[in-house]
């Protein structure tokens, strides 16, 4: 069955049926929650931010003119709510490692990740994502989980397209560095097994 357009539910809500909002919440709650979680890294706080986001979305639904995708608009509100929350608590994650990778090193990292089982690999990636600065983790989540185009991400994060592209590139590199550092013992082990 084809997915009914978001606009249909928005019209229902604007015509006095607030219960239609349930569908929109169900449709976007996982993504909004994950984005918030990447920014604040605290489950309770992320859930609170996600709730606030949906209430803000409901209150300002009349202002949504359909110029961008509804999801883009919702993620923009999520991003701003997260920034407000971070500003209030004056927290910001800063990670500054970026190193150069040779092709061989990248291959090696890939091979090591392939040797560990899926669940563990997932956990490692999640942990490394948490180590990224807030907005970079947010950017990667938007790019990979929701297949948002760079153009839409630039609207969400209020940044130019070229800036987002540079950020995306740097973030990937940072994530690879964090992964490498975290998997150092596994890489050594992998080398030893190769040598044998």
């Amino acid at each position: 069955m084809a997915k009914i357009e978001d606009q249909h539910y928005i019209n229902l809500i604007l015509n006095g049926n607030p219960n239609a909002f349930t569908t929109l919440v169900d449709r976007y709650k996982d993504m909004v929650y994950t984005l918030a979680l990447k920014m604040v890294t605290n489950k309770e706080e992320a859930e609170e931010i996600a709730q606030d986001t949906f209430i803000k979305v409901f209150r300002s639904l009349e202002k949504f003119k359909g110029e961008s995708k509804f999801s883009t608009w919702v993620y923009k509100i999520t991003y701003n709510t997260c920034l407000d929350s971070l500003k209030k608590s004056k927290r910001e994650k800063k990670t500054s490692y970026i190193e150069d990778f040779s092709e061989h090193q990248v291959k090696e990292l890939e091979s090591v990740l392939d040797t560990i089982d899926e669940k563990e690999r997932n956990q490692v990636i999640q942990d490394c994502l948490e180590e990224l600065p807030n907005d970079e983790a947010f950017l990667l989540t938007l790019y990979y989980f929701d297949d948002q185009s760079v153009d839409e991400i630039s609207k969400v994060m209020n940044n130019s397209v070229s800036n987002i592209k540079v950020k995306l590139f740097r973030t990937r590199k940072k994530l690879a560095s964090i992964l490498k550092e975290r998997l150092e013992p596994e890489i050594v082990e992998y080398y030893e097994s190769e040598r044998r």
Binding site: T34, A50, E110, R121, Q126, Y144, F145
Partner: peptide, 12 residues
């Protein structure tokens, strides 16, 4: 790209 493909969204 390969790594992120396998990861899943968190649920509230």
């Amino acid at each position: 790209d390969h790594l992120m493909k396998d990861t899943t969204l968190a649920s509230p």
